[in-house]
Computed example of a mutant assay.
Amino acid sequence: MKIAIVVPMAEEAEFYHQYFSSGKKEMFGSTEFEHFSVAGNDLYLGLTGIGKVQAAMNLTSLLAKEKIDLVIMTGSAGSLQKEVQRMDLVLPSEFAYHDAHNTSAGNYVEGQIPQEPARFKLDCAERDKFKDFLGKKGVAYKEGLVVTGDSFISSQAQKDEILGNFPTALCVEMEGAAFAQVAYHFNVPLIALRAISDNGDEDADNDFAAFVRKVGAQAAELIVEYLRENDF
């Protein structure tokens, strides 16, 4: 089975190298993907870069050239809800773009790109299997809507604007919906796991710098354990 792990930032990717020995490196788009063999599976690890365009461009470059069976995206996110705290894990069930406002362009809802689904839902057997793994390990997580945009959210005013359109959104980040949109068009299942690095408020910048490595390590450890223990 061919599995791709995609992360936006070097701080989030570095921990995977603690678990995998150096493998073959190959360029797909503008991203260098490292190729490992893990538990009999071919694993492609790529640092895609930050933001929607980088995420979509580099995942598309990989999927257009390799027959990937599963995409796993990890990384950090900012909380939008009081009950979602730093170091919490979020398992997205669906993604939307919080910066897509196209309701005046036709029969579209907030967060919808014209002629695309309103939400990119991650309902697949592979995700269900990962949920079972988290449950068996006793890993606590929040599950629900995650929203994506090209801005780092660092004020209560920004949070309030997003929540006005997406009151149930658990957290906000900068790549997930783009990964999900690409996976949707290539008909490849996607598992997403975000760890909360900040509260998306005026302290977000300081909190993010302090916590991004911690939450990156947290997510990486779970993903690696999942890959090693499960038969695909």
Rank of each mutant, 00 (worst) to 15 (best):
M1G: 10
I3N: 00
I5N: 05
V7P: 02
E11H: 08
K25F: 01
S30A: 12
E34Y: 13
H35W: 13
G40M: 12
N41L: 07
Y44L: 11
G46C: 02
L47F: 10
T48E: 06
I50T: 13
A55R: 10
L59H: 00
L62D: 10
L63E: 01
A64L: 12
A64W: 13
T74H: 10
A77Q: 05
S79E: 10
L80H: 03
Q81W: 07
E83S: 14
V84D: 02
Q85S: 15
R86D: 11
D88P: 05
L89G: 08
L91G: 05
S93K: 08
E94S: 10
A96Q: 03
A105E: 10
E110C: 02
E110K: 07
Q112M: 05
Q115A: 07
Q115E: 01
F120N: 03
K121P: 04
K121L: 01
L122T: 07
E126L: 07
R127E: 10
D128M: 11
K136C: 05
K137G: 04
G138W: 10
G138R: 04
V139S: 05
V139K: 09
V147K: 01
D150N: 13
D160Y: 06
G164A: 01
F166H: 04
P167A: 06
A178S: 10
A178V: 00
A178Q: 00
V182Q: 05
Y184A: 06
Y184L: 06
I191M: 03
A192W: 00
L193C: 12
I196F: 09
I196D: 08
D201H: 06
E202L: 15
D203L: 12
D203F: 09
A204P: 10
N206C: 13
A209Q: 14
A210K: 15
Q218C: 12
L222E: 12
Y226A: 12
N230H: 14
F232A: 14
F232L: 14
F232I: 14
